[in-house]
């Protein structure tokens, strides 16, 4: 699923960033790398999300969020 599909308050693992290199590098500099934990804190009506990665909060626009694939972190938690 993409970052758009995640639930508010849940923590996921970033699976892949399907974005062009410049945006990827910006995300990585902000701590959003493949394999890192990501917690979804909020989402607005336009689809932008607020996430917590490596201890910092990021606002990520819809067009970036829809290209970030995430995995449920705890498979037991997924029914």
């Amino acid at each position: 699923m993409t970052l758009l599909g995640g639930k508010i308050g849940e923590t996921y693992k970033v699976q892949s960033l399907n974005l062009d290199i410049a945006v990827r590098r910006r995300l990585e500099a902000l701590g959003l790398t493949e394999g890192t934990d990501i917690t979804i804190l909020n989402r607005n009506r336009g689809g932008a999300v607020i996430v917590m990665v490596r201890g910092s909060r990021l606002a990520v626009g819809k067009r970036i969020a829809e290209k970030i694939l995430i995995l449920a972190k705890n498979h037991k938690g997924e029914k």
């Binding site: 995300l27 909060r57 990021l58 606002a59 626009g61």
Partner: peptide, 14 residues
């Protein structure tokens, strides 16, 4: 034009 170069990406400080 669907470039995402300028899509929102900003740190929200505490």
């Amino acid at each position: 034009d669907n470039t995402i170069g300028n899509a929102l990406l900003i740190e929200l400080p505490e």
